[in-house]
C-alpha cells in the first residue's frame, strides 16, 4: 500500500492503525463469546451447583442429562415445535410471496401487515396469544357468545396440544418475515426465464413448480437456517405464552437450561444442556456461514 522507503513513524502507524482499532471489538468477541463458551463447556464437566465450582466430574452431567425425562421432553417438544414452525412458516411465506407477486392491488398495504409482528417482542406476542387462546375469555368464549355452543378450543390448557399453540404464535410472528425473503427472491428472478417458459406453454402450476421454486433454493436455505436457529433459541415466547406448562408440555431446551441453572441450582447440568444447544446450532450455522463467506471471495 505504501512506498517502502517512506517507513517513518506516521506511515507505520497508518499500517498498524486498522488492526489497532479493530482489536477492542475483536477482544470483546473473543472473551465474551468464545472465552465464555469455553468456560461454559468447562463448567459442564464440573460439579457446579448454585455457583460455579471446579471439581472435575467428567461426563457425569451429560450422563445425568440424557437420563432426565425433563430433558427428553424438552427435546421431543423442540422436535415437534421446530419442524412444524419451519414447515408452516415456509409454506405460508412462500404462498404469500407468490400470491403477492401477481401484481396485486394494495400490495403496499398488505406487505407491512404481514410483517409487523416481526417488530414485536415475543413477550408481547405471547401475552396477546395467551389471552386469545384462553378458553375462558378468548376465542372459545367468543364463539359461544356468537351462538356456536359446542365450539371447543382449549389447546393451551391441554398437555397434548399446548405445544401447538406455541407453533401458532411463533408462526404468526415470523411467517411474514419468510414471505419477505421469498418475495425478494422472486423479484430477483430474471423475467426472461419466466417469459420463455410461458411462451413454451407451461401452465402456472408447472411454471412455479418446475422453474420458479427451484430458482428460489437460496431463499429456502436462508429461511431454513434462520428459522431453525430461532426455534432452538426460543425462550421468551414459551415464558410469556405457557410458562413451560401445563406440566412440562411446552418445555424447550432453552427453558430447561434456565430452570436447571438458575432455579434448580444444577449449574453443571444446565451448562451441559447449553453446550448441546450450541452444538446443534453450530451444526446448522457453521456450514451455512462457511459457504456464504466462501462464495463472496
Amino acid at each position: 500500500m505504501y512506498h517502502a522507503s517512506k517507513s517513518d513513524f506516521k506511515t507505520r502507524l497508518q499500517t498498524w492503525l486498522p488492526k489497532l482499532v479493530l482489536s477492542p471489538s475483536l477482544a470483546m468477541v473473543l472473551i465474551f463469546v468464545y472465552g465464555f463458551i469455553l468456560f461454559t463447556v468447562y463448567l459442564s464437566f464440573t460439579d457446579s451447583r448454585i455457583l460455579p465450582s471446579y471439581g472435575w466430574v467428567g461426563w457425569e452431567n451429560y450422563n445425568k442429562l440424557w437420563r432426565l425425562s425433563h430433558w427428553e421432553i424438552s427435546l421431543k417438544n423442540l422436535g415437534i415445535y421446530a419442524s412444524l414452525y419451519i414447515a408452516i412458516c415456509t409454506a405460508i411465506g412462500l404462498t404469500l410471496a407468490i400470491f403477492l407477486d401477481q401484481k396485486i392491488r394494495g400490495e403496499g398495504i398488505l406487505r407491512p401487515i404481514y410483517l409487523y409482528p416481526m417488530a414485536l417482542s415475543f413477550i408481547v406476542t405471547g401475552t396477546a396469544w395467551k389471552w386469545f387462546l384462553d378458553p375462558g375469555i378468548g376465542l372459545e368464549h367468543t364463539m359461544h357468545l356468537w351462538g356456536w355452543e359446542s365450539f371447543e378450543f382449549g389447546w393451551i390448557k391441554d398437555r397434548n396440544l399446548a405445544i401447538y399453540t406455541l407453533v401458532l404464535a411463533a408462526v404468526w410472528q415470523s411467517s411474514g418475515f419468510v414471505m419477505a425473503m421469498f418475495l425478494a427472491g422472486l423479484r430477483g428472478i430474471d423475467s426472461e426465464i419466466m417469459k420463455a417458459a410461458q411462451i413454451d406453454g407451461a401452465s402456472n402450476w408447472n411454471l412455479y413448480r418446475r422453474i420458479v421454486i427451484p430458482l428460489l433454493r437460496p431463499a429456502f436455505l436462508s429461511a431454513f437456517v434462520i428459522l431453525a436457529h430461532l426455534a432452538i433459541k426460543s425462550y421468551d415466547l414459551v415464558i410469556a405464552l405457557t410458562g413451560g406448562g401445563p406440566g412440562r408440555a411446552t418445555e424447550l431446551p432453552a427453558t430447561f437450561m434456565y430452570s436447571y441453572t438458575f432455579t434448580r441450582n444444577q449449574m453443571g447440568i444446565g451448562a451441559s444442556s447449553a453446550v448441546i444447544m450450541l452444538m446443534t446450532i453450530a451444526a446448522i450455522m457453521v456450514p451455512y456461514l462457511y459457504a456464504e463467506l466462501r462464495e463472496k471471495k
Binding site: L26, F36, I37, P253, T261, A274, I281
Partner: peptide, 15 residues
Amino acid sequence: LMLFSCFIPFQIVLI
C-alpha cells in the same frame, strides 16, 4: 468468528 457470535444460543454465555 464475529458473524457466528450473532447466532449462538445465548444460554451458552449466561453463566
